[in-house]
Design a binder for these strands. Structure first.
Lengths: 363, 363
DNA sequence: TTGTAAGCGTTATCAC
DNA sequence: GTGATAACGCTTACAA
């Protein structure tokens, strides 16, 4: 039996052609192969690879040479199985082609790399079914943890379904249910609106309500908007509050067009996202309105496009780098020390209002 | 010995609290646990899970019930080890926050999901070191294949270093070395320039040269630009050809400012990417130039921002969905049937020129 | 300091 | 139709 196995092993060694997937890639060698060639045990090779102490300098040098010769690469799958962790985290966002999420994703990938984590990106397209499937699929077993920017599913169901540690992005309605990282949406929206009011505008419209969603971001921004109006002694006017189905530029353009068509006569617009604002800007220009003279405009997200718009767009800028980093820190804590004792964190990251030409500020 | 093992196994079963990472997540159960509970062998449970034929209907129903009860999820790491594949592919792009690459990434993620592949995204930031590390790291063992949009490393070195099947994006200088998918950059650039010439422009500038890079895209677009000029009987003017270090909006703005400062007096600009074009547009506006009256502008990439710019930007639109899909198809073929016999493919995807206001077109 | 061997949870090959 | 059991390649406790 043992002899047979040994023989098979030998033959396998000879006829090995499995993952030789590309031109001159050397056949991948295992610890066993290296050990055999170097005349040491697997254990020693493993120690050398992982840089563990307790290997004689001479041995380590010899082994290392063989390692290089044979072009050894550790098999990640085996490590994962053995270690019970994959080194992968999931990032679930509505859409990668949305500039805000693309920027966030880029920062998360970067911050993850610093922690030797690799990021798997999933797009939910704001579809509840996709969000659920994700929690049980990717989030089921493949990844060590999941950073999710929820859209249609509320925090209760999210935490209920998740099978790995979860960090919520841009969701502050989740108090006590799961870790979440976000700006103070209400406050930021209030500041943005107050900025327009301070410039003397009186009919400030809001674009971006999403009354049908479980996601609380839009309603928080709406609250902030109304708060600012009330503090200025202005009663919110439903005709100035425009709902959208999605957050693309086209939706902003449509909402702006509707405002003008309805004769709501806004003299300013606070759009809940920069994309909506850019759409509104386009629409306003097409209608012959001058920005900011006839219409002042403020967006939210601080995407790069805003800076180069014509005119440059005033926007609320969340500290995205901090969002990414704190979300990762959070996740790392949960993954590496799964103490249920620590209560869910409510992390608020700073934001600032970047005043540009669209609201009458400097170019 | 066997008894000891059995005992340990038993104790482990009792004290098992490893991956219970989140609140009410059930402790993950293995095939073995399900088998024990259902009173069948592991083999049978495995068959039920994978939907293999050869299980009595009654058994299958009973096992399935237990499976659901225990909330069984297959362990992906074990499957990977066993199967020799990870189901992961890498996507290496310069920057996720660049709209063009964000759109491509979104489409790749989507197309991959349809093939039950999961995408791992890496950013190279155009750093040769990062690109090399990637090929040996992520691309070394973790993923089944790699789609890479090379920046600073030439195709020779890429194919040399890669240890998994590789598909190059936006690179047509790689003839015969590796599969690559791209538009006909030279032709597209020629068409874009010809469009400006056809509108009567005579001093057409080019923004986006990158003479220091191994990546051939910029030089192909430059060739196309010069071809168009020559066909119109115009000698290329070095003063009108502006190099950039990166492809961000700021670089476009700087290049435009330099053109104006140098008194090169362009009456049109062909920017090698939309981001450069948007920066140039911003810069032109700041200098009081009217677009398209004083300066006509064409970009390249067909990003969504271009459509909503003021004025809307004329741009060369590559069929990005097709880029993503064909790249994935390519990779799938290499991964699943690693026949070295099939020579590297040179896939050209269609493009079109979308004429908008910035070059004097509609809206 | 180094070797031996027991798993990690699957899948797949045998035998019954 | 079902049950044992051997790999997959690695890490690590235990021995030597």
């Amino acid at each position: 039996m043992h002899t047979l196995n040994a023989t098979l092993q030998y033959l396998r060694g000879i006829f090995r052609t499995p993952a030789r997937a590309c031109k001159d890639a050397p056949v991948s060698s295992r610890l066993k192969d290296v050990a055999a060639r170097a005349g040491v045990s697997i254990r020693t090779v493993s120690n050398v690879v992982s840089g563990s102490a307790g290997v004689a300098e001479e041995t380590r040098a010899r082994v290392q040479r063989v390692l290089d010769e044979m072009g050894y690469r550790p098999n990640q799958a085996a490590r994962n199985l053995r270690g019970g962790r994959t080194g992968l985290i999931g990032l679930a966002i509505p859409e990668l082609h949305s500039p805000y999420f693309a920027e966030i994703a880029g920062l998360v990938v970067e911050a993850a790399a610093q922690r030797s984590w690799t990021v798997v990106i999933d797009q939910t397209h704001g579809d509840p079914g996709a969000e659920r499937r994700l929690l049980e699929g990717t989030g089921g077993r493949l990844v060590d943890g999941l950073i999710i920017s929820p859209w249609s599913i509320g925090p209760e169901e999210l935490t209920e379904r998740a099978r790995v540690p979860l960090v919520l992005l841009g969701e502050r309605a989740a108090q006590g249910l799961a870790d979440h990282v976000a700006v103070d949406n209400t406050l930021a929206a209030e500041e943005a609106t107050a900025h327009l009011l301070a410039a003397g505008r009186r009919r400030v419209a809001a674009i971006g309500l999403q009354p049908h969603l479980g996601n609380g971001t839009a309603s928080q921004r709406l609250t902030g908007y109304r708060n600012a109006l009330r503090k200025a002694g202005i009663a919110p006017d439903p005709a100035l509050e425009k709902a959208v189905t999605a957050l693309h530029r086209g939706d902003g353009a449509d909402a702006m067009a509707a405002l003008l068509r309805d004769d709501a006569r806004p003299d300013a617009v606070f759009a809940f996202t920069d994309e909506l604002a850019l759409g509104a800007l386009h629409s306003a220009g097409a209608s012959g309105l001058r920005v900011p003279q006839d219409l002042a405009l403020v967006g939210f997200d601080g995407i790069e496009d805003a800076r180069y718009a014509n005119p440059a767009l005033t926007t609320v800028v969340p500290d995205k780098r901090q969002i990414a980093e704190r979300a990762l820190q959070c996740l790392a804590d949960r993954v590496y020390s799964p103490t249920t004792a620590v209560p869910p964190l409510d992390i608020v990251v700073p934001h600032s209002l970047e005043v540009r030409a669209s609201s009458g500020g400097a170019s």
